[in-house]
Nucleic acid binder design. Structure first.
Length: 551
RNA sequence: GCGGGUGUAGCUUAGUGGUAAAGCCCUGGCCUUCCAAGCCAGUCAUGUGGGUUCGAUUCCCAUCACCCGCUCCA
């Protein structure tokens, strides 16, 4: 089954070809498979194969080690305002439904959509706005998706067209003053869709539930509905008090979590880039409001460096700071770390991680009730009855600085990374082809996955040059010596050149080969994946040498 | 969800209303002293479900998946 059939002009493009080859290699070598493939697959779900699981685990382990367990609580890292502590959590996928109401996901992820039968476009029900317009006894609700500054112009133009009038007849149109949202209109048959030429082309609004819904309890009905988490972050916010009370951490500190999240994406596409089940690596960093700007900048740069340190090139990786008008007003900064995936058109980038300054929005929402994102200063969002739309926990999630006796609601910096997206970026970055001579000296194309050694699924392969003269026995002993410390692989089948090539495709950085000199001098060769160079080291020093090169 | 395209072995491709072909890969063996060599043998496929037909991989319908363009993207 063709996993990636780049068609039309995209077939010409080098990057699409590269993507096609990468997808093929991922399946052939066992990095990634379609979920439930023998039943035809399931859209938006992917399985990691034997090599893929090692790769992804290495990515997650590197993140956890670099952000949490390896973090030095006592020092001030470069760029940081002061020392800080890091700790971790592992929360459940299913949480109290109120969590998602206060986080805003419930409202945001329960979109009602209308389709236009004529233009085949789809709109969010609550985002379509317009005005009633009357001409010649006919009353029509004209809608537009245009921005506020061009809205009037667009409405008038489209109304004139509908009524077959010229521009000079504009004053014959009788407009209602009020701008209404589509949900405020009773009859959709009177509505002129934003891209339609006739009225009545919009379908009734249909619910699109972007959170996976499930039932808690065997006999559960709708009142027992629960949701699979669409992000891991909320588990951290609702455990903020638990962590503070149980660990003696002091602000500033961060809580990290790695885990699965689920979003019922309308259009999963681009290999694993947009999956319905995916894994996140998130940090919620809690700090004093006064220093939050400095911490935001620190985390933005720190996270960018993490990717480059693991081998993503500066050319394909960008840090994109959001424009002020893209931000919620309570956020004083958001940056995306983006990668130029080969499946994207030239010049476009896909998000690997977002670093957001979230202010006190999340903690306050879980205390007081869901805040209104549009309010300034932030106030609890109220329903039609004047009561909070979604009640908060009522628990005190503020923080008391014991020394200064200052009590405040911490501000939050949120570096939120996609583990699958990072893994995919590392796969794309690693894929390369070069030329290497075969045993006859003819140049052959060599496919090699140039993973950073830290994330390479297999760290080293051990080969006897030939299957005789006691070489396999020596090689097996080296394999056994290394295996407790590293994921190493033993292979004695076929020509050694073929074994090297297989490891190149798996991205194994080093191959250790036992040859006749091993028998005489107790030395082996270590072959470098990228340079093809071989260096000779003593058998007893192999483990140290591999360890040195991997660190 | 809409429109278009594509589904034959792990991969790349043939082909047919009547036994589905090849190369590479893979597995085993022989041979091999450093980069996909050679020889022998072997495993493995018409996405799924219907319909038409004596017979469907081929024709028709539906469905699923992937790709492209819309749409969506907290």
């Amino acid at each position: 089954m063709a996993l990636f059939d780049a068609s039309r002009f995209y077939r010409e493009s080098e990057s699409a070809m590269e993507m096609e080859k990468l997808v093929s290699l991922c399946k052939r070598r066992g990095f990634l498979f379609q979920s439930s493939e023998i039943y035809g697959g399931l859209q938006g779900f992917w399985d990691y194969g034997p090599l893929g699981v090692e790769l992804k685990r290495n990515v997650k382990d590197a993140w956890w080690r670099d952000m949490v367990t390896g973090h030095d609580d006592l020092m001030t890292p470069p760029g940081a305002p002061e020392p800080y502590e890091m700790t971790g959590l592992d929360c459940t996928i299913i949480m109290h439904p109120q969590v998602w109401k206060c986080s805003g996901h419930y409202d945001l992820f329960h979109d009602y959509m209308v389709d236009c039968r004529e233009s085949k476009r789809r709109y969010r029900f609550d985002q379509v706005r317009g005005r009633w317009c009357e001409y010649n006894g006919r009353r029509v609700f004209v809608t537009t998706m245009a921005e506020a500054d061009t809205m009037e112009e667009d409405l008038q133009r489209r109304a004139l067209k509908l009524f077959k009038l010229r521009g000079k007849d504009a004053d014959k149109l009788d407009w209602d003053a009020e701008i209404l949202d589509l949900p405020q209109v009773d009859k959709l048959s009177d509505v002129l869709g934003p891209d339609a030429r006739e009225t009545g082309t919009l379908t009734e609004p249909r619910e699109f539930n972007l959170m996976f819904k499930t039932i808690v309890g065997a006999l559960g009905g709708d009142e027992d509905a629960a949701f699979l988490r669409p992000e891991t972050a909320q588990g951290i916010f609702v455990n903020f008090k638990n962590v503070v009370d149980s660990t003696r951490v002091k602000i500033p500190f961060g809580i990290a979590q790695v885990g699965k999240s689920f979003r019922n994406e309308i259009t999963p596409r681009n290999f694993t880039f947009r999956s319905r089940e995916f894994e996140q690596m998130e940090i919620e960093f809690f700090c004093h409001p006064n220093s939050s700007q400095d911490w935001y900048r620190y985390w933005r740069d720190r996270r960018m460096k993490w990717y480059t340190d693991l081998g993503l090139s500066g050319e394909r990786l960008i840090l994109r700071e959001h424009d002020p008008d893209e931000l919620s007003h309570y956020s004083t900064g958001t940056a995306d770390i983006e990668y130029a995936f080969p499946f994207l058109p030239p010049g476009e980038f896909g998000e690997l991680e977002g670093i957001a300054h979230r202010g006190d929005f999340d903690l306050r929402s879980h205390m007081e009730g869901k805040l209104d994102e549009k309010s300034n200063p932030l106030v609890v969002q109220v329903g039609a009855d004047g009561k909070p739309k979604w009640r908060g926990s009522g628990k005190d999630l503020t923080y008391l600085n014991q020394e200064t006796k200052e009590r405040f609601t911490p501000h939050v910096i949120e570096p939120s990374a996609g583990a699958d997206r990072a893994t995919l970026a590392f796969l794309c970055e690693a894929y390369s082809e070069d030329e290497a001579p075969d045993d006859k000296g003819n140049m052959q194309t060599r496919v090699v996955m140039k993973f950073h050694p830290r994330i390479a699924p297999i760290k080293a392969a051990v080969f006897p040059l030939v299957k005789k003269d006691g070489m396999p026995e020596i090689a097996q002993q080296i394999y056994r010596d290394l295996k407790p410390s590293f994921n190493v692989f033993y292979d004695e089948k076929g020509a050694v050149g073929r074994r090297y090539r297989r490891q190149d495709e798996a991205g194994t950085p080093y191959c250790i080969t036992v040859d006749s000199e091993t028998l005489a001098e107790q030395t082996v060769t270590i072959r470098d994946r990228d340079s093809l160079e071989q260096t000779r080291v003593k058998v007893d020093d192999v483990a140290d040498e591999i360890r040195r090169r991997l660190s």
